[in-house]
Amino acid sequence: MFSGTNPTNQPSLNQPAPSKIAAAEEVFYMRPSKGWANLNLFELWRYRELIYFLTWRDLKVRYKQTILGALWAVLQPVLTMVVFTIFFGRLAKVPSDNIPYPIFSYTALLPWGLFTKAIGDAGRSLVSNRAMITKIYFPRLAIPLASVLSGVVDFAIAFSVLLVMIFYYNNLPGGEYQVALTARIWTLPLFLLLALVTALGAGLWLSALNVNYRDINHILPFITQFWLFITPIVYPTSMVPERWQLIYALNPMAGVVEGFRWALLNSNAAPSYMLGVSAAIALALLVSGLFYFRRMERTFADTV
């Protein structure tokens, strides 16, 4: 019953026969991919406008129909800082390297808030965007990437509060603590980048795993809580015994937080070889996350 409208329909298994096509035209091939996929970051670059729009959507939607709106970006770290100051600073008397506890903890909470928000949002991003994934093609990397990037705006808003706090401490009558912003502040973007790389790396792993294993939804809060304790947010790194310092540095967020305090508050914990360890770990997390994500990506539409 096969009609003869297609005389060239000879099966030529894997080798595509050259077709008559215009030179300028794009050609897409769909075939089963094997082994580790290549990253194809060029394609991601071509879809940069989509990343922009997805980031913009996440931002727009986040505070729609809320009374306080973007104020939430400030309230969350500020309230956490107040609680930490009361319980860890006043009651438990945790040392803070001679920096007033509120500013000590708030400086750490800035990158920490960015990080937890990013891994939480990115980890859930593929599942919450399943309608798009199962209907339309676009580089899937755009989704967790946009989740991470949208946190940067919240970070910027919360950062302005830190400047107010520094101003307050510097003008406190009889205040012995002074923050002099030095040239070190120009290294801040590097630490911010380190936080983003770590968050994206972890976010890629979690989001791809979440497609197959919804356990990730339950694990996520636990990861964040656990990670908080191994990061010097409520306590200074100087509390960690010397012989554990190297292991401690395996957590890239420790390097980020120390870096923030060093760049902004002139704390004496200067970045050392430990920062190199942190950066190497963060990079490894990102690269492995990218490859794992690309590898799993081909079945996302079928399993999500």
């Binding site: 769909m30 089963p32 339309i136 093609y137 079945t299 539409a301």
Partner: peptide, 22 residues
């Protein structure tokens, strides 16, 4: 429309595919 990968065989598409799948 490249939403999912084939298990075997191959397809070749010349040009941008717009899908009104949903």
């Amino acid at each position: 429309s490249r939403v999912t990968e084939p298990t075997e065989g191959y397809a070749e598409v010349h040009g941008r595919v717009g899908s009104l799948l949903e």
